[in-house]
Write a protein that binds this DNA or RNA. Structure first.
Lengths: 125, 125
DNA sequence: GTAACTGCAAAATATTTGCATCCTT
DNA sequence: AAGGATGCAAATATTTTGCAGTTAC
């Protein structure tokens, strides 16, 4: 555990995540910061951010891990479980803004933390 | 491409998938058939089955690939996009029987092929 | 000063692929 | 006979880990 230090690397990764409208993959960040930030460091920063509920993660269609900023999460409650849609052709992930969707979908049998829909987007159709 | 041959291995893998109420991971099958069927063969059989719409696949919380039998799919149309729920603690996947859920969730902006919800199941809560 | 962060190399893990051989039709 | 299936080993690719050295508070 421990406190997160706001290092230069931390800030750089955070900046990308805040700038992005949709989710980004860990792999994208590794490539993007190639020769600037070591990949281990990136994975560790992402882990920390998720622990601190600054971002949340999910696994995409191809098994890659994706991250997106949490809009309205607190340390106590992580309620940013808005669904994501990923196109299996272009692999792009889009956030779907919709409220109460998860519970609407399956009632309250489970504590739902993330929802991922996959398929084909209108651009690739 | 080519025609699927109903070999002994093919039948054995199919039997497991049909017997199962919920989805199983490729990894489970590899372990289950250890010393009986080579892992490459299992992956290839699963690929073929998916091509032929006998089963459908999705990627779980930990990036592992999961497979489940298709209940009402034809070669022409693959409409078995019932949602799956995976517990991030016990990793178990449950099929959620619900109709029209995917389209209800996001309208008709995308062609939705699979829906995965993750979180914590009532047993692990 | 101490705990957290970083880079590097190596490990772990799941899946894929090349190739030679075997089997099914 | 021919095209598909199989086993084996090696390759891929992503993520994790151990460790030594550095940095932030």
């Amino acid at each position: 555990m421990g406190i997160i230090r706001k290092t230069k690397h931390f800030q750089k990764v955070l900046d990308i995540l805040l700038k992005q409208e949709n989710a980004v993959s860990a792999n994208y960040l590794v490539t993007h910061f190639n020769d600037e930030i070591n990949k281990s460091t990136i994975y560790r920063i992402l882990d920390k951010m998720e622990d601190d509920r600054i971002i949340h993660s999910f696994v995409g269609v191809n098994g890659l891990k994706w991250y997106a900023k949490c809009v309205k999460c607190t340390v106590k409650e992580h309620h940013d479980n808005h669904p994501h849609f990923q196109c299996e052709k272009c692999n792009e992930v889009q956030c779907i803004n919709h409220t109460n969707n998860a519970t609407k979908l399956i009632g309250s049998q489970f504590l739902v933390k993330s929802v991922l829909l996959t398929g084909i987007c209108n651009r690739c159709f």
